[in-house]
């Protein structure tokens, strides 16, 4: 029985020792050991949190930039298309204008040529009439062999030719 009491006994002197030991122990733990660890862990957690947040911000920024780039590219494409279209239109206009000019020029040259030909024809006809008249006179004088009144004859022949050309 006495030894059973020994198990449950409370030893005051021992309790004082434990109390003193715990006080010293907790003092050292609280002053030199635990706070450093708590601080280090908190710092690390903060660092990780900050890094994650910074990464998120950076990601959003990158996404924005990429969106901006895409938009700018699209705009540039549209611009390029527009420029190309304008250039094509310009070229077309220039070409048609040139063709028109060329046509005009050609028409003018043709008209000039026609006019020249007409003139030359008229001139040639006139010359041919004179030639024919002279030839007729010469041949007639040769044929009749008589000196006829030059003036009278000429009129005669001219009339003849006139009639000729009218026919």
């Amino acid at each position: 029985m006495a030894s059973v009491v020994g198990i449950l006994s409370f030893n005051t002197g021992f309790a004082i020792w434990v109390l003193i030991s715990m006080a010293v122990f907790l003092f050292f733990m609280g002053k030199y050991a635990v706070p450093h660890i708590v601080k280090a862990l908190e710092d690390r957690e903060k660092q990780i949190k900050d890094s994650l947040e910074a990464a998120e911000v950076a990601l959003a920024k990158a996404e924005q930039i990429s969106k901006d780039n895409k938009k700018a590219m699209k705009e540039a494409e549209v611009q390029a298309q527009k420029i190309r279209k304008e250039a094509l239109e310009d070229a077309e206009a220039l070409r048609s204008k040139k063709v028109e000019n060329a046509k005009k020029d050609a028409g003018k040259i043709l008209a000039d040529a026609k006019q020249t030909i007409e003139q030359e024809k008229k001139k040639a006809l006139t010359e041919l009439r004179g030639e024919v008249a002279e030839l007729a006179i010469k041949s007639a004088s040769l044929i009749i062999d008589a000196e006829l009144d030059q003036k009278k004859n000429k009129n005669l022949v001219d009339n003849f030719i006139k009639d000729l050309s009218k026919n």
């Binding site: 198990i7 409370f10 030893n11 021992f14 309790a15 109390l19």
Partner: peptide, 10 residues
């Protein structure tokens, strides 16, 4: 019991 009682008292 002395040890656990002291710890509990703390």
């Amino acid at each position: 019991l002395t040890v656990t009682a002291t710890l509990a008292a703390i």
